[in-house]
Design a protein around this nucleic acid. Structure first.
Lengths: 149, 149
DNA sequence: TAAGATTGAAGACTCAATCTTC
DNA sequence: GAAGATTGAGTCTTCAATCTTA
């Protein structure tokens, strides 16, 4: 029972994910962005000119609404996003990305692309596609947010 | 560029890993164990009666020596592990698992097995083997600790 | 020089709770 | 009741630095 700990999926997934996140945060540090903030900007960049609520951004980033609330607060202070009450839902706040936000997003994504390339070098193109396919399956079964491919 | 954020390997890996860790911590809470502590007990259980240093345990658990130091402190207080100076290296402290530690480890691993089963249901046996194979490849290329199969 | 242990400070995250609006 | 936003408390983690020993 104890012998197979290192073969367990959650363990292996955590080891790889933690190492990737570590590298990613290193590339992101010069831009003053963390994972939640980059994910928020990226989602807003895709949806632009539409807006998303903080709760939705949190779900798509895999963090709680509380974490995303703090992340958005920082983005607001720096003028990377703006926010306005949703006319139909009094409590909901629509978050929009600004031109400054788009510019920083482009820079940050270019910088983080190296992490993808470096990590994926170990896998062939077929393997990469197969890995993505299985991760999508897992995300689906766990009811996580899954963007359309 | 922004469009494929949701398809990036670090993002997908983080989403799945975070969800799995979340479930795992939920199962672990009744035992008063976190990831670092369970990983330490599991590694020590495999190596018993040999000992491991805190630094080694940290590397194998995917956390820093500082995190593992705190984790071990808690395990020591609860009598789940004991520690003694390594006779050959004055600064190194050998950590051993106790009978109490082994008993709790067995209980905790039984409880967390449900997370594995539940998450892997979405994948066939072949897919599971293939996923493990690719994760091992990634761990190897990133020079992470990889137990022998 | 290098490796191990540890402390203090800071960041990121969750849980719990509250408030507001539909 | 359900969904969204936010605050406060607590946990887990890393970064930076220090001390010790081979």
């Amino acid at each position: 029972v104890a012998e197979d700990f290192g073969q367990r999926l959650p363990y292996m997934m955590r080891m790889v994910s933690a190492a990737l996140s570590q590298q990613l945060e290193g590339e992101l540090r010069p831009f003053g962005l963390n994972h939640a903030q980059l994910a928020a900007l990226a989602q807003l960049g895709v949806e632009d000119p539409d807006a998303l609520s903080g709760a939705t951004l949190g779900r798509r980033a895999g963090v709680t609404a509380q974490s995303m609330s703090a992340a958005i607060g920082s983005l607001l202070d720096r003028g990377l996003v703006v926010r306005a009450p949703n006319p139909d839902h009094g409590r909901r706040l629509d978050v929009h990305i600004t031109d400054e936000g788009k510019a920083l997003l482009a820079e940050a994504q270019a910088a983080t692309a190296v992490v993808d390339e470096r990590s994926l070098m170990a896998l062939s193109a077929d393997e990469q596609a197969e890995l993505r396919r299985m991760l999508r399956k897992l995300m689906e079964s766990m009811r996580l947010y899954l963007p359309k491919h």
